[in-house]
Amino acid sequence: MKKLFFSAVALIAFSSVSMANNITIEEESISNINKIEQKRILDDPKTDFCSNIAADVLSSRDPDNKLSSVEAYRIYQISLNACLNFIKK
């Protein structure tokens, strides 16, 4: 009886650990996929190209630094998106 009891406890413990590991593995997979995707975007030469374009748009519009940081950042973001979506290198 005692053996059976301890076996059941061991079995439950083992299952729990396995399940926990599975969850961790799944989360890790998702995290890895995100990292891979981010790396793909950052390593994409077009991102570098478009970052430069976005920076140029900003400095063309505001050579005297009259914009606030928030305004400047939004212009940069939208210019970057516009380039990534529409400009062919």
Binding site: I53, D56, V57, S60, R61, P63, S79
Partner: peptide, 14 residues
Amino acid sequence: NFEPKKDAKQNELI
């Protein structure tokens, strides 16, 4: 009343 400087880049988008 804005004109980008002649040597400014991305004038087309502006």
